[in-house]
């Protein structure tokens, strides 16, 4: 093979390679990307440990923000005309000192008890280019049903540490996406890369003893067997505070907590 033939072969090879690449890309199905498997397969769980309903206790309380309420950040949604939601960020929702969106759960004290995974899904809605709710609690393996009620496309992209990462697009009026998270993980961020202000947190736990504070800062955890527990209060920015709690049979206990920002 002489030199000229060699260079011509190189040129033809490059053209052929590009044609192959284009062919490979074109041969993809020309429709919305196929969803990845809808759910992670949690490990087969042991039968639930029975709890005597006659002895169960309730823990409730209020979470306060310690200090002056932070200024609410404004969101600029102008990059998508389909976004017509409230333009206030939900990083800190403080009303009269009461702090919303704090995930409260029994972190320790349940021993080797196991619990049934609820059959009913929890719903995560995208409306006004915001997630509703902003903080969600779910049991490991429980179905999360994700809806899009906006006239624009979102992509749902959880960025977990211990669960499987995925990223799916959801056009307007498309069917709900159903997913679950197999492993326990607190404050698992979920974001939309199309609308960078859209962020929420999923909390995956093994027990049903959790709650998220409302705008009044209140929470309630029912059906807890009597015992000594560690109650954790977790906020996306303020971090975690723990409290030791002992509840007797049928007791209703109030456990309040205040969270404050870390010193700058």
């Amino acid at each position: 093979m002489n030199k000229k033939t060699g260079w011509a072969t190189t040129a033809v090879s490059m053209l052929a390679f590009c044609a192959l690449l284009a062919l490979a890309a074109c041969s993809k199905k020309e429709e919305a990307p196929a969803s990845s498997p809808t759910a992670e397969q949690p490990a087969a769980s042991a039968p639930a440990t029975p709890i005597d309903p006659a002895t169960v206790a309730t823990i409730s309380g209020t979470v306060k923000f310690d200090g002056p309420a932070p200024k609410v950040s404004k969101i600029d949604m102008s990059q998508d005309p389909g976004c017509k939601g409230a333009n206030e960020a939900e990083t800190y929702v403080v009303t009269g000192g009461d702090l919303a969106n704090v995930f409260v759960y029994v972190k320790d004290g349940l021993g080797s008890r196991t619990f049934d995974t609820p059959k009913d899904p929890v719903v995560l809605d995208q409306q006004g280019c915001k997630y509703h709710p902003h903080v969600l609690g779910v049991m490991a393996g429980q179905t999360v049903q994700i809806k899009n009620d906006d006239p624009t496309t979102h992509n749902i992209h959880p960025t977990p540490k211990d669960n499987r990462e995925w990223n799916e697009s959801q056009p307007p009026s498309s069917p709900a996406i159903e997913k679950n998270f197999a492993r326990e993980e607190i404050m698992l961020p979920v974001k939309c890369n199309q609308h960078p202000w859209m962020k929420m947190y999923v909390n995956v736990v093994k027990s049903p003893f959790f709650a998220v504070t409302g705008k009044d800062g209140k929470y309630e955890i029912k059906g807890l067997p009597p015992g000594d527990y560690t109650l954790a209060f977790v906020h996306e920015k303020l971090g975690e505070q723990d409290q030791k709690v002992t509840v007797a049979a049928k007791e209703t206990k109030t456990v309040d907590q205040s969270l404050k920002p870390a010193a700058e």
Binding site: L21, K28, P33, D80, N155, E168, S169, N193
Partner: peptide, 27 residues
């Protein structure tokens, strides 16, 4: 603009090679 994953598939974009998507946000 933190838009790196606003189109979740590759080498296609929302299932198409060239078709222009709804041109908003990170897309």
């Amino acid at each position: 603009n933190d838009a790196g994953l606003s189109v979740p598939d590759w080498p296609t974009s929302f299932g198409y090679l060239i078709k222009v998507p709804h041109f908003v946000g990170g897309v």
